[in-house]
Computed example of a mutant assay.
Amino acid sequence: MGIYEILKSAHSGWRYLVIILLLVAFINALMGYLGRKPYTEGNRKLNVFALISAHIQLVLGLLLYFMHDWYKGDMSIAIQRYWKMEHITMMLVAIVLITVGNARSKKVDSALMKHRTIFVFFGLALLLITVAIFGMIKADPSRHLFAM
């Protein structure tokens, strides 16, 4: 097993941690916002863990992207277009949303606004990730939702 296969397995497996952490942080922020709960150190740590996991996923993904030469793919072939442009663009935007949401939540004073900021930005990132997953399934019908 070469380095590419190891990185691909790591990237494929790590995605579950990213999605779970984002989903838990999103639900936690929603409950905090709707319940007008205080913003705790636990909330902050959960958001930072979600942020860090997403950035680790980004690094793994970029290594794979350039090791496999996806940037040289033929745009007329759906699966190559997906990996060359669509996947990387949507994931980069999602990670920017996570990063901006976390940074903005630090700058507001009110606990309610902190929860709302995380809810909005992490929610948008989750939505974009979900769209990317379904785009992958459409571009490559041999893959399914939980494929490794």
Rank of each mutant, 00 (worst) to 15 (best):
G73Q: 06
Y82Q: 05
W14L: 09
L21H: 09
R44W: 00
V59F: 08
L51N: 05
L17A: 14
Y82G: 04
M90H: 09
T89D: 09
V18Q: 08
T99E: 13
I56G: 03
S110V: 04
A54R: 05
R116A: 06
K45N: 07
E41H: 08
K37N: 09
I98L: 10
Y71P: 04
K138P: 00
W83H: 12
A50C: 10
F146G: 04
H144F: 13
G101E: 11
I3C: 03
K107D: 13
P38V: 01
I52V: 15
A78E: 13
L112I: 03
A94W: 11
K107M: 15
D69N: 14
I19D: 04
A50G: 11
M75P: 06
P141A: 12
F146H: 00
A132L: 03
M1E: 01
L126Y: 02
Y39Q: 02
K106H: 10
I77E: 11
D140W: 04
Y33R: 08
M90L: 15
I52H: 01
D109R: 12
A54T: 15
M113I: 06
W83A: 09
V93C: 09
R36L: 07
T40M: 01
R36T: 07
D69Q: 09
G2L: 00
A50I: 08
S76H: 11
L124N: 02
M91Y: 06
T40Q: 04
R81D: 07
R44N: 11
Y65V: 10
